[in-house]
Structures are given as structure tokens and as C-alpha cells.
Simulated assay, not measured.
Amino acid sequence: MATKRKEFTGKHMAMVFVAGFGIVIAVNLVMASFAVSGFHGVVVANSYVASQKFNGWLDKAEESRALGWEVRPERRTDGRVVLSTAGVPTGATVTADLRRPIGAKDFASLTFAHDGEGRWLSNEAVAHGRWTMRLAIAAAGQDWAGESELK
């Protein structure tokens, strides 16, 4: 008994192309969304100049780490930032520069006032959203720098 084979037509080929490209486009969209949502880097104006400063940045980070100071930022409901610190000497000067990690070109600067044992409270409020905060602490002739994410 002979079976009749179905013919592969142009409609079938069109469906194969549409399905194949649909899968490729869907995967690209998913991967692009992962890439954008997970980006925590900084876009610099001149990557060559930044690369020449990189070792200096690493040295400063190691010096900060050697001080043993710890800082944990937290945003209050009123938008002000509280820093819980450990090892930071009294009389320190604490400042922060904030920027959006990607997309919006928002920038902000904060100054902090001592608010009790190991706590510092920002004098300014910060808009809601995701920020990258660069902290600078100067005390007793020593400088500490650190970076933290503020959500």
C-alpha cells in the first residue's frame, strides 16, 4: 500500500523562516534586557585616559581597605541617607557623589552630619530610584573612599 507524501510548499518554508527568526529575535530581546538591567559600570568619556589611571585607583582602594573602616548606607523614607559605620574616627568629614548607574544623567552630592555612635545622616534628600554612591571620608589625616549601590 503506497502512502501519499505531503508536499513541502512555499507556505511551509515561510513558516520555518518566521519561526526561526522569531526565536532569534526573542532570545536577543531577553539577553539585551538582562545586559541592561545588570549593568553596574561607568561610562567614561575617554577609555584610554581612564585605563591609564586604573592602577592608581586600585592603589587607593587598597589603602582604603587597609584602614578597616566599614560603611553601610541605607535610604530613609524621607529620602535622606543614613550611613552606619564601624572604625571611622569621630570628627570625620563625610561626603558622597551620586549618579544613576545607566540611562538617566542624574547627579547629586551629599554632605553628612554625625548622628550618634557610628551613624551619619545626610543633610540632603535623594530622589527615589537606583543610584551609585561614591563615598569619601577624611579623618585624622587619612582618606577613605568607597562605592556602594543605593536602591
Rank of each mutant, 00 (worst) to 15 (best):
K53E: 10
H12W: 01
D115Q: 10
M13Q: 11
F112R: 03
G91K: 07
L98Q: 04
G129T: 06
L150S: 09
K60W: 03
R134P: 01
R80D: 05
V36T: 14
A66N: 14
T3E: 10
T85P: 12
A61I: 01
S109N: 12
L58D: 03
S33M: 14
G38V: 01
D59N: 12
E74H: 07
R65G: 01
M133V: 11
V71N: 01
T90I: 09
A108P: 03
F21C: 06
V94L: 05
R80G: 02
A19F: 12
P89M: 04
F17E: 10
L121P: 02
W144N: 05
I137H: 01
F34E: 11
K53G: 00
G103R: 10
A35D: 12
A139M: 11
D97L: 08
T93L: 12
L67E: 05
G68K: 08
A45M: 02
F17W: 08
F107I: 04
F107R: 13
G146L: 06
V18H: 02
G22Y: 10
L150T: 10
A140N: 15
A61Y: 05
M15D: 06
D143Y: 00
S84D: 13
G91N: 08
H114V: 09
A26Q: 03
W131V: 04
S51Y: 04
V49W: 00
G116P: 11
F107Y: 11
K4C: 00
I25H: 03
R5L: 14
N46Y: 01
E149I: 10
V36R: 14
L121I: 12
A86T: 15
A66H: 07
V49T: 11
S84F: 01
E62Y: 06
A113P: 00
A113R: 15
